[in-house]
Design a binder for these strands. Structure first.
Lengths: 206, 206
DNA sequence: GTCTATATACGGATAGAC
DNA sequence: GTCTATCCGTATATAGAC
């Protein structure tokens, strides 16, 4: 399913091009001229559709951020799935996501760090995690296993760390591990099974 | 030990200022004027000492990259310390490092991703990890525990992921966990003990 | 070595024709 | 809606006085 730019409206062509370049290079390093060229249109059109570089970036940013947390919100409020199932789905979801768009996590993390107000108005609310069923199940499981001294946030951090960080650091990992791109993909596939197993061990006492 | 800029030579003042700003904002978003102001000198001096913005950045980049892997190279080639000890030191080293300079990891990871040739000429060699004593000890431990089917790179990735990622994602974690900065520091202190324990569990069979 | 003033280039944005 | 040409602010870099 090659996404041919020709099918899209001019506005969408620009948006797609902007997203590609902004996501890869960040706000400052991106030239509006490069977006125009990538979209196959003239620079003036960019300002015709979106008033400024900044406006365009905002749109891209919200889309990227949305992609990062969308699909997770419903998952962690799901009442019918077990904790184990949630961890499995979460890990698999993100690994698939990053395989498709490896620049996404670094883009999001850069943005929330350099521009704190990113964390307003994007659907990522305080309490979204803390009040979730997922969190309740986690706390319950720790209680069952007499591990109440362990802050459940550690486990949440571990899930995301072990899932996302390898993609962020992939250039270093490829070199340090003497891996091909294909090797790396295989390893990340393995992690879909491994990470949930490790999390399970962390939940158990002893 | 406040580092007062007044003590330094002009050249070092510029370098220090450059490092601070480049590390925080990245290459493109940094203005040489801001570096000059931060250093308390005139803009022209910057070009007098370092020929260009790019040259100056290169120096900063190498310093930052060096700080990231320096201290680790010797550690992983140490023959007298056990695997457990190495993991402990590694985790503690990086957590201390990031506490002091939280912008460092994102800077390094951005740079290696956007500029692949960063990975040449910086002391980070292919085989540096694979040929290390640390790696040998890891493989040996897995063999002892009849876990040879597990690629040891997974465990290396886990150590770095669980240690470094929380700092990269700290703005998100603070909000999602409803944490104060002090809470976060406390949690990261806890992780100095926890991560080695988790790694140990991953090494064991069952 | 350090400054002020300025050259030069680049990038975002707009005017105006079609 | 789409283009070409151009404006104009800003950022890097340099010339030249002290």
């Amino acid at each position: 399913m090659e996404k041919t730019l020709k099918d899209l409206s001019t506005e969408d062509k620009i948006k797609a091009a902007a997203r590609k370049i902004f996501t890869k290079k960040g706000y400052s390093a991106t030239r509006t001229r490069d977006i125009a060229k990538e979209a196959g249109i003239n620079l003036a059109l960019l300002n015709y559709y979106f008033r400024s570089k900044e406006k365009l970036f905002e749109i891209v940013m919200l889309e990227n951020f949305g992609q990062f947390i969308e699909g997770v919100r419903e998952l962690i409020y799901e009442r019918t799935t077990s904790l184990d199932q949630k961890v499995n789905v979460l890990v698999e979801f993100y690994i698939n996501q990053m395989n498709e768009n490896p620049d996404l996590p670094l883009f999001v993390l850069n943005e929330v760090r350099s521009n704190p107000k990113t964390l307003k108005n994007n659907g990522f609310t305080r309490d979204m995690l803390l009040k979730s069923i997922f969190m309740q199940q986690l706390v319950e499981e720790l209680k069952q296993n007499k591990k109440t001294e362990l802050n459940p946030l550690h486990l949440v951090m571990n899930i995301f760390s072990m899932t996302i960080f390898p993609f962020i650091a992939s250039p270093l990992i490829l070199k340090a591990g003497n891996l091909s791109v294909q090797d790396f993909k295989t390893i990340m596939e393995e992690r879909k099974k491994l990470i949930p197993q490790w999390i399970k061990k962390m939940l158990l006492n002893k």
